[in-house]
């Protein structure tokens, strides 16, 4: 006899996973950044299990999309593997820190940190995609030693793009923190990984985003095994979210290609910033510093997120006007 109550609950979590996958894909931040707030704020899932489920979903989405990008030769496996030296180490330390935080009942720190990470990730993600190729910079000793050259065929411009990265050491430092956040918050840390390869290593945006996608799976797998033994993978949740987020991210990727009006993405950025602010409020309430009633927190979070996204939108419009045709 099928337990319809449990089945309904499973389907609801799966639907949440699909929504997280779609929003994560459309905003470029990945399903995990949406899934953890969604599960903790709306489904009442403890953050321990939400992060565990998120890490598993992150590997699934990364493997799904990285398969396509590696086949097309855009993701640079060599650069990705080299940078994983730092991210995997960071993920181990992050997962261990998570265990310490949870055992000491300091979960509010995770909520606060998560909120801050989402809000700060929105800014570089919004700016992402404005330019395809980096400015030419003088190569350094790491360019040659760490073989940071590569090429790919750009379907849009119908030409082969050759590139060489720089400052491998700086990329590694940033990747360590990306790994640390991944292990600590159950996310892919795609925004930080992109920052490491785009800003620090001066790689083309397509190589950066696709290589980051490839790397996310390795980083998340590192944290997942520690989460498994510590007991933070809840089978019921992890199964529903792995399937849901994977399906959602596929839908999101297909939608992204079909949406002609890119401004629609701003709606999803508003949702994301709302989740970020609400996570901070939940963290403040749990820390017992100040008790924010849920409906007031909800109202402030909505207002704040709308204002924040409008300001970012205006700033982007101004910068576009200043620097010419960037979109």
């Amino acid at each position: 006899m099928i337990d319809y109550g449990a089945l309904t609950e499973f389907l609801l979590i799966l639907a949440g996973g699909v929504a997280a996958g779609i929003i994560g894909s459309l905003t470029g931040l990945g399903g995990g950044s949406v899934l953890v707030p969604l599960l903790t704020l709306f489904y009442g899932v403890p953050i321990e299990y939400a992060t565990g489920a998120s890490l598993i979903s992150t590997i699934a989405t990364s493997a799904g999309s990285a398969s396509t990008y590696t086949k097309k030769g855009i993701a640079n496996i060599k650069i990705g593997v080299g940078l994983e030296v730092a991210t995997t180490l960071g993920a181990i330390i992050g997962a261990l820190t998570f265990e310490i935080v949870v055992t000491h009942n300091l979960q509010y720190i995770l909520y606060l940190l998560f909120g801050v990470v989402i809000l700060t990730s929105i800014i570089p993600t919004v700016k992402r995609g404005k330019y395809e190729y980096p400015e030419e910079k003088t190569l350094d000793f790491t360019s040659r030693i760490f073989q940071l050259s590569g090429k790919y065929y750009d379907e849009k411009s119908k030409k082969e793009v050759k590139y060489t990265g720089i400052r491998w050491w700086l990329g590694e430092i940033i990747m360590f923190f990306a790994g640390l956040l991944s292990g600590l918050l159950g996310i892919g840390s795609g925004a930080l990984k992109v920052l490491g390869m785009d800003w620090a290593m001066n790689l083309p945006m397509k190589v950066t985003t696709t290589t980051s996608n490839f790397m996310i799976g390795i980083t998340a797998a590192t944290g997942s095994s520690i989460y498994w033994y510590a007991g933070y993978i809840q089978f019921f949740l992890a199964s529903a979210t792995a399937i849901g987020v994977l399906v959602g991210s596929r839908i999101g990727s297909a939608l992204l290609l079909k949406i002609s009006n890119k401004e629609i993405r701003w709606i999803f950025f508003t949702v994301l910033s709302f989740l970020g602010v609400d996570m901070i409020f939940k963290g403040i309430t749990l820390s017992k510093i100040y008790n924010i009633p849920p409906f007031i927190g909800f109202g402030i979070a909505i207002t704040f997120s709308i204002i924040l996204v409008i300001l970012l939108f205006i700033k982007l419009l101004i910068s576009e006007g200043k620097y010419g045709n960037l979109r």
């Binding site: 006899m1 099928i2 337990d3 109550g5 449990a6 089945l7 609950e9 499973f10 009442g44 899932v45 403890p46 321990e48 299990y49 565990g52 949870v102 989460y227 498994w228 033994y229 007991g231 933070y232 993978i233 809840q234 089978f235 019921f236 949740l237």
Partner: peptide, 27 residues
């Protein structure tokens, strides 16, 4: 869902994710 349990644990308990301190239903 078909068997109504997994590893001998009833599905109603498997679906209960509210207590992370209970080790019977997690990894």
């Amino acid at each position: 869902f078909i068997n109504g349990n997994a590893n001998g644990i009833p599905i109603s308990q498997l679906a209960n994710y509210e207590n992370p301190k209970n080790p019977s239903y997690n990894s």
